[in-house]
Amino acid sequence: MIARRLVPSDLSSYALTKELAREQCWRMIEGLKWRCWEGDYVVFNPLSGHTHFLDIVAGQILTLLMAGSCTASVLRSSLSRFLEVPDDDKLAATADDILMRLEAAGLVERLD
């Protein structure tokens, strides 16, 4: 939530935003039902009644959160090892984007 409130008006606050986003803790919504087939995931959210189709990367993030809540940086490192790609800004942007989408779908939430 803090990351959303900060406006990157200068370089120092932008760096702070990135840092806070990196340390943002995430968790999976309770009660989700899911199946994984050939790398694709289908997930049922009992709170919304919606069923979501996730690709392997989004599904991997959800799988990591199934084990327990963790920070965005830990998620990113795990994702880096899973995808065998460098843990760089590009991967960070991808992970952030996926987390936002999962949050919008009501599948994950931030821990304050």
């Binding site: 199946r35 087939w37 694709d40 069923t51």
Partner: peptide
Amino acid sequence: IERSQAFMRLI
């Protein structure tokens, strides 16, 4: 076809 695709089509 993959099961995930079949699942979404059956929904």
